[in-house]
Nucleic acid binder design. Structure first.
Lengths: 233, 233
DNA sequence: ACTGGATATTTTGCATTCATTTTTTGGAAG
DNA sequence: CTTCCAAAAAATGAATGCAAAATATCCAGT
């Protein structure tokens, strides 16, 4: 019989590295693996997912799998129909709107808190990434641009210094990540320039530690992202 | 052998009512029951909770119980130490601060969204509860006051019309509910009057549909609640 | 050929069982 | 009397088994 799924990513020579970061329980590792598996889109939306298939895919028995499914259902990533198994939760346009707004609210909060406690070196780091992003923008390097963009938002959340917020934000971001809007979004030149200007305003408000103002800007920034995503859908 | 826990709250004559709202799965019902059980403080913080005891308490086997525990751990209500069982998660003062701030951020978002879409009848209903609350305040009826207070905040969240936000808010509110700050808080007369004035400002901003302003007021309102809670701790 | 229904198969939900890890207990040595 | 170690007991993590529900299949009747 095959070994559990964890070994499928193991190279023989990497055994010590694996030992250095052992997965505490099968369940925990499975949860992460299964979440990534779904977020990365390996399961079509709305399709019934038999437990048996997933068990074979990850080489585990049904018990830990079902535990993981329950958790993912609580996270809102999948839905469990009684006696009818799990399916990847379909995101209606309304769901996507809601998720964008909640992300906007959480980023607004993050910005407000960041203004209260961000250090100069943290700000300098964000500013540095911002300038990198601007260069990518000028070069029309979309990959680099989006990478920096995501990094800045993540750093603002981190600068808020609120672990509960960070966890909540990660959960919402994970759910929305399944929506592939960036491809179409990237083609909208106007939106890109607008986003760049919004980021300038974000930096400016953060520099002045203007929490309330930054809060508004971040929420509206996400609203505009939402609009662009809707337009491209 | 005893029947499952659900029957312990059943009166013989209530069978039809129970049938009208059947619990889909044992797991689902257990999840709700166990969550309430913990939120209501039936389990001391930090104490190891043997699965066996909970199984006997709810008259179910370990499998659905463990599934429910995994979900509650994901919600942050309990923590699961590998091979060492579950314990009710202790809330440090920092955790409480974080939760208050996240609640503030979510309520700020709710207020902003409510300004966009609240109807006149919804606003009138909130205003009515607000006046009820004021009467309770004058009479020093703390029970009525807190009931109205909670109702208003809940109605603002509902008026936002964002199910994702409502679910996130409910999760955070559930986690913080375990902290018993209201008892001490109620004795602080100054804070009570201050809170009353803040609620006036909330109503005023909502009446004018001033989303950004309401957002600020609600966040600061929660901040002040946080301070009062800290002071009484 | 198509529809309806009965049967067979699959799948889910939960209980039970097994193996491993942790905790407790008992006793011997200092 | 205290401390340390070993064995027993208990608890956890995962697998398997079993009953009920859902789905699929097949056949009869039109």
């Amino acid at each position: 019989m095959n070994e559990p799924f964890l070994d499928t990513i193991d190279e023989p020579g990497l055994a010590p590295a694996e030992a250095a970061k052992p997965v505490a329980s099968l369940h925990e590792g499975l949860l992460v693996a299964l979440r990534d598996f779904i977020v990365e889109g390996n399961l079509a939306d709305g399709v019934r997912v038999p437990e048996r298939a997933l068990c074979e895919r990850f080489n585990i028995s049904r018990t830990p799998l079902r535990e993981a499914l329950k958790v993912l259902a609580a996270e809102g990533l999948i839905e469990l129909l009684p006696n009818r198994g799990a399916r990847v939760r379909e995101l209606s346009p309304e769901d996507v709107c809601e998720l964008f707004d909640v992300m906007g609210g959480l980023e607004a909060l993050a910005g407000r808190l960041a203004c209260e406690r961000i250090s100069e070196v943290e700000f300098a780091e964000i500013e540095r990434i911002h300038h990198d992003m601007y260069r990518f923008y000028l070069r029309r390097d979309m990959h680099g641009y989006f990478h920096c963009n995501q990094a800045i938002h993540q750093m603002i959340v981190a600068a808020a210094g609120n672990a509960t917020l960070a966890a909540t934000y990660a959960s919402v971001a994970g759910r929305i990540r399944r929506v592939r809007y960036s491809a179409n979004l990237a083609k909208d030149r106007d939106r890109l320039g607008e986003a760049m200007r919004e980021h300038e305003a974000i930096l400016d408000a953060l520099r002045r530690r203007a929490g309330s103002e930054l809060s508004d800007i971040l929420f509206l920034h996400l609203r505009n992202k939402r609009k662009a995503a809707q337009a491209s859908a």
